[in-house]
Nucleic acid binder design. Structure first.
Lengths: 220, 220
DNA sequence: AATAGAATTTAGCTTAGACTAAAAGTATTT
DNA sequence: AAATACTTTTAGTCTAAGCTAAATTCTATT
């Protein structure tokens, strides 16, 4: 009754980590949506994950689920794999940042610790993946992120894009079209207090206006 | 009832390909041994593989199993993945030839066609993997191999090692210690007709004697 | 405080892929 | 040709992980 982390379990843990990142437990429904699985299936899995020893989650009926420290370790391991893989697919095989997610999602479950070490070393132990997400360290701790959403900047302020949130390829390609990619120097030259739109300028290119749907997903 | 090639099925097809390479059908027992599974489990799987449409194997009770052309295509796809991955792990991540098998066995089932294409291109569409095994081409045909076992050479003959047969790490390390690796120029300077031992010399290094257990598994 | 509606859980079913034990077929040896 | 040994298949069971439908619990609104 220990140490059998199937692919499915790893996916559950990863999503629970993500959904409970804000401190609040993850809900059955949200998990079902993220995992493309029926809510009843989630309930069944959560019961199992709470009853294996050591327990991977803390689960109380109708109250959502959080990870135990065991569960968190396992989640961080998968997330480290995922983000290292994404970085490495981009750097060594010429993938673009909108293409890597799916491939990494399948590879993350099967690579060995040796493989993990080798690509981490080959990449120079990167801190962030191609989307700017922080990569958990080799000892499985998640570095703290001090970025804030672009939406929090006001006219006259500027920042360097550090991270974008979201895996949808179309969204990522759109950001790329705008130049809102990690490393970009962004100047806020306008703000509308009614809709929250920002007018941005990157380097000396033409300015453009973007709404909250974007500025809340780009971090500086 | 079509096109669902699970990891398990892929493993069965790969082993059937290997065991029936000589033309004779593969036996239930041999498959069970290769797959580390009970013979009864093999029977069950073969029945399924024969009854899906399109059928992947030709199976008749008590008479062994062979691949249909559909099954062979699927097997070659997996084998191509495996051998490209091995090549690539060695070339780009510094794996040694005795370390790659296991890792490739897990990765082979999850990489995309896109990934396959990218590594094939990055490697310059190699013909052989690090053990010298031929890599099926992109259109899924297996090139013909014109090598013969080192055991078939006699005193005075010479050849270049093209391929070694076997995945056992200890065996591979032993061969490496002897210098019997793909590319090595081998001269036969002695033959014993009683035990089949050959005395070999590689470049101008000291000669050494090896038995059939080795010379039947090294091809020139 | 009652109740409609949403979220969650229970109950029971399905499939893939393994297992064991027992039965049946095939092969070998006398 | 019979007896024994080996191989293969059948029959029945198990677990992981999903599903649907029905029951339950929670929450929000009247």
């Amino acid at each position: 009754m220990s140490e059998i982390l199937t692919q499915s379990i790893q996916d559950y843990l990863k999503q629970i980590y993500d959904l409970s990142a804000d401190g609040a437990p993850a809900s059955t429904n949200d998990l079902a949506a993220r995992l493309s699985v029926a809510p009843a299936s989630v309930t069944g899995m959560l019961q199992r994950l709470a009853n294996v020893s050591p327990a991977l989650v803390v689960y109380k009926k109708h109250q959502g689920v959080t990870l135990t420290s065991e569960g968190e370790r396992a989640a961080l391991e998968v997330i480290r794999h995922h983000r290292l893989l994404e970085t490495w697919l981009v750097q060594t095989l010429g993938y673009t940042w909108d293409e890597v997610h799916e491939e990494a999602c399948r590879l993350e479950h099967v690579i060995s610790e040796d493989f993990e070490r080798r690509i981490a070393a080959a990449l120079g132990n990167p801190a962030r993946d191609p989307h700017g997400d922080l990569i958990p360290t080799a000892d499985l701790t998640m570095p703290s992120d001090d970025t804030r959403p672009l939406a929090s900047l006001r006219t006259g302020e500027a920042g360097t894009v550090k991270r974008v949130h979201g895996a949808d390829p179309a969204f990522l390609r759109h950001l790329q079209g705008l130049g809102l990619i990690p490393g970009a120097q962004v100047h806020v030259i306008g703000y509308s207090e009614f809709d929250g739109n920002l007018t941005l300028q990157i380097d000396s290119q033409p300015a453009f206006v973007v709404g909250l749907a974007i500025t809340q997903r780009v971090f500086v």
